[in-house]
């Protein structure tokens, strides 16, 4: 049973990145997170959304779905796309793994999500695309 939830469907466009992470950050503010905790959430969201735009849709047209759900002091996030997905998910989750090194990609996206959140699960979306599920419990100041 969730205490609160929201759902966003938004165009996969770089110009929406700041909006998406700000909305998710604002959604969590009621849980009295520390500044660092809010920033962790915003950064992890930014990584997942960048991944959908740059890798999932390869800069082309598409939608991104963001579900956020609060239960107690825990927020669960689901960020999904219908893009090309990732063939070898465990390999892609290794630090510094990138298929686009020539474009100044650090390959740190999943590493950041893993380090900044308590739980990270990456699975294929059906019928296509990627689903990134993350959880974080706010412990406060």
């Amino acid at each position: 049973m969730s205490d609160n939830y929201m759902q966003i469907r938004i165009k996969a466009d770089m110009k929406n990145e700041s909006f998406i992470r700000s909305v998710v950050g604002a959604f969590c503010v009621g849980l009295n997170p520390t500044l660092e905790e809010i920033n962790d959430i915003k950064t992890a969201v930014s990584e997942a959304v960048t991944n959908s735009i740059v890798h999932g849709y390869e800069g082309g047209e598409g939608d991104i779905w963001i579900d956020a759900e609060i239960s107690g002091s825990t927020v669960r996030l689901l960020i999904a796309d219908n893009g090309i997905g990732i063939e070898d998910i465990p390999a892609a989750m290794q630090p510094f793994y990138t298929t686009k090194a020539d474009q100044d990609r650090s390959g740190m996206g999943f590493t950041v999500m893993q380090a900044f959140m308590d739980e990270l699960t990456v699975t294929p979306n059906e019928p296509r695309g990627l689903k990134v599920e993350m959880k974080k419990t706010f412990r406060g100041a």
């Binding site: 960048t50 474009q103 100044d104 990609r105 650090s106 740190m108 950041v112």
Partner: peptide, 8 residues
């Protein structure tokens, strides 16, 4: 604000 894009 900075995500891993800044590292790249």
């Amino acid at each position: 604000f900075m995500d891993s894009t800044g590292i790249g």
